[in-house]
Nucleic acid binder design. Sequence first.
RNA 1: GUGGGUGUAGCUCAGCUGGUAGAGCGCUGCGUUGUGGUCGCAGAUGCCGCGGGUUCAAGUCCCGUCACUCACCCCA
Length: 424
Amino acid sequence: MTRAISAPRGVPDYPPPRSRDFLFVRDALAQPATRAGYEYIELPVFESTELFIRGVGESTDVVSKEMYTFTDRGDRSITLRPEGTAGVIRAIIENRLDKGPLPVKLWYAGPFFRAERPQQGRYRQLQQVGVEVVGSDDPAIDAEVISLAYHGFTSLGLRNFYLNLTSLGCSICRPPYRKTLQEFLGSCDLDQETRERALINPLRVLDDKREIVQEQLTDAPLMIDYLCPACESHFTSVRSYLSASGVQWRENPRLVRGLDYYTRTTFEFVHPDLGAQSGIGGGGRYDGLMAELGGESLSGIGFGLGTDRTLLACEAEGLTPFVRRLIDIYFIAMGDEARLRTVTLMQALRAHGISCDMAFDSHSLKSAMKNADRVAAPFVAIVGEDEMHSNSVQVKNMTTGEQESLPSTAQALIGHLISPDRKA
RNA sequence: GUGGGUGUAGCUCAGCUGGUAGAGCGCUGCGUUGUGGUCGCAGAUGCCGCGGGUUCAAGUCCCGUCACUCACCCCA
């Protein structure tokens, strides 16, 4: 026996039965967007490295030390996408979507890659569901985007998460605030590493978890108090629309995001039961990104929701399994003729949207029944010699144990499965 | 990338101060002729993560390595 090969470090498998819940979660997170007029966009998982350097920001941790970058055979620098927004914006520009009707509303789902130290809920290949809207400054769209994520989570039954919300200002009010904050931080007693961070991204220091740092920050200036009138009224409207959308949030003026492009409305979803990796989603406005990437000067807003972490959150809240049963009826055929008839019957049922499976590799009826039980089939159809003679099938209700003889036709079976007197 | 913890059957884990491995669950079979879930009986399964070292002898001690895990960092 040769040695088995294991997966590269930090990449998760979702074998069944958990894969059922993974798909369920992914679909649930995407569904609100599809109901709100968002179109799906399929994107490559690798892009030119430059896209992320320019789009996400060279100074961010994501770009500076977490990217999977390699040189392809044409000597081009290629990077496995670490996040979704830059790629979507690139595709909008490249496909001239920004020349069409606005706003452009898109959603996507798939894997992203970050070369981080793995831990629970932090993977080197992570799955996200995201949406992006380009070409609208309407605060109602901010609220719509946030409510999409919010209701995606609630639709799964999640209750223990909360939404952090703030405004990061714009190109007019942020620079002066940034200077004010830097001056303040300069007067604090900070270690070398934090001082450097204060120069590159002073906002990030506000988020420091250490108490020694936090107690010095109690009087730190906050962006929210320095918003210009336009940002101020935008944020006020966003709040109104959020209330009207049934969304609950917490204002967190110290909320910081790791990517450079965020402006104005910024938010994150946190699930406290997940340990250190508690962010299950986040996003915000990025009013300069389109122009930065060579497109029309249009504003945008979007989010990324972590499918992996959302599944973890659902498990932490005891909501799983979401999917208990895959098939509606399980066939057990005895003898070659019976198996032929069964195959035909199953084709007809499947064509009608009924899921069915059968016992392969003829075992004893007993072990076939056991299999039926294991796949949680609510009904079992038995086709043996007697049934072949009488052109019938025995259909057993696995919850009640009742069994009856039905004509060997798809119609009869379908009628039995959907008849109101059965409740599985 | 930095620190701590763990690594024994498919799963969850026990194995005290070194003496060639155990439980529960699961799995397979049986409980008579074509019927699952409960119950009873029987059975199989382990390069004790990997490599090296100490020792008469190592799952048990030491070193290294890999993986997982927790925290930092960062973020989904």
